[in-house]
Design a protein around this nucleic acid. Structure first.
Length: 118
DNA sequence: ATTATGACTCCCA
DNA sequence: GTGGGAGCCATAA
């Protein structure tokens, strides 16, 4: 599917985010910005022609995540959990998948970071 | 229309 | 490596 969206179809857009998140394998993590980057229009195209996108939106899509989507594999660019409520549960889910947290509660993105689709 | 608020990121001190 | 602040975009009030 083309990673570009023309109409301001929010629901479709969220679905696109979820679709990408579903591709993150167990034991790996991706950042909000990384997900956003997979959808953002290229620089030679008018960004206004597409539904504006930003890391914040990915967070919003995660908040409305349907069951079955591995939302726990999305963390912030610092390798930390951004979830305000339920952060402990997210950490448990990731550790269960083999993702290691250091003593300061951070994940080594060089080791566990998802290299993207394909 | 304006303001406040987010599961963010970047930049700089 | 860390923390604060600006920038960010959509939504809700």
């Amino acid at each position: 599917m083309s990673p570009y969206v023309s109409p301001p179809d929010v629901h479709f857009f969220n679905a696109l985010v979820w679709e990408i998140v579903c591709k993150i394998p167990s034991g790996k993590v991706a950042t909000y910005g990384q997900i956003a980057g997979l959808i953002a229009p290229p620089p030679d195209m008018d960004a206004r022609s597409y539904l504006a996108f930003s890391p914040r939106w990915v967070g919003g899509a995660m908040a409305a995540c349907p069951e079955g989507v591995p939302w726990q594999r999305v963390i912030n660019a610092q390798g930390r959990i951004s979830l305000r409520s339920g952060a402990e549960r997210q950490r448990e889910l990731l550790e269960y998948e083999g993702v290691h947290f250091d003593d300061r509660g951070r994940v080594d993105l060089h080791r566990y970071g998802w290299s993207g689709p394909d």
